[in-house]
């Protein structure tokens, strides 16, 4: 059963990812990424990360992607030519990427770490990955990281307002 779920999720996620890269219109790329993220959330569930999966759907596929959709709609569907001005990059890039994938796969599959060959279920306790457990960790052991992350978000929000602010852009255009 797990195997079936994994392969369904994996195929969906890979398909979504390829579509993100291959779609010419950025708008469709965004939608493809949403698909990818939803399938990936399913895989997260298999890994007993319920809270992360939920957060992925709500925050990522929900909120963050909405921004993408807006921006993609705002800047318009610019269809770029599929053929690059520098064909070398189009050839060398994917070759190197495939090489990377092959190397990592060899490293993972050929690793002498026996734990990699298990599904890890013997180590997992009852409340693994529940919002309760994660929340406890976040607010006890990782409070500083949590606060720092919230501060970072604030800074990023301010930065975005300044970057895309209307006033300055108009002033420079005028």
């Amino acid at each position: 059963m797990t195997e079936v779920a994994f392969f369904v999720g994996a195929i969906g996620a890979i398909g979504g990812a390829i579509a993100v890269v291959a779609m010419r219109n950025p708008f469709y790329s965004v939608l493809a990424l949403v698909v990818h993220l939803v399938f990936l959330a399913g895989i997260f569930l298999l890994l007993r990360a319920q809270f992360i999966a939920a957060a992925q759907i709500v925050v990522y596929a929900g909120a963050v992607m909405v921004i993408y959709v807006f921006v993609a709609a705002y800047v318009g569907g610019i269809e770029e030519p599929m053929f690059d001005s520098s064909p070398m990059l189009r050839i060398v890039g994917p070759i190197l990427a495939v090489a990377l994938f092959v190397e990592i796969s060899i490293a993972v599959l050929g690793s002498s770490l026996t734990a990699l060959g298990t599904d890890g279920s013997d180590k997992i306790q009852g409340g693994f990955g529940t919002p309760e457990a994660i929340g406890k960790l976040m607010l006890e052991d990782f409070l500083i990281a949590f606060e720092a992350a919230s501060l970072l978000l604030l800074v990023a929000a301010v930065a975005a307002i300044i970057l895309a602010g209307r006033k300055k852009a108009q002033k420079e255009a005028a």
Binding site: R48, A49, Y60, G120, F128, A156
Partner: peptide, 27 residues
């Protein structure tokens, strides 16, 4: 999951936040 340690999950949440920041600034 392999180690049975939830610290990794917290890390993912932090990565989620960093990704959101990156999106906001990038866009």
């Amino acid at each position: 999951r392999m180690l049975g340690d939830q610290d990794g999950q917290v890390m993912v949440l932090i990565v989620l936040v960093v990704a959101a920041c990156e999106v906001v600034v990038g866009l």
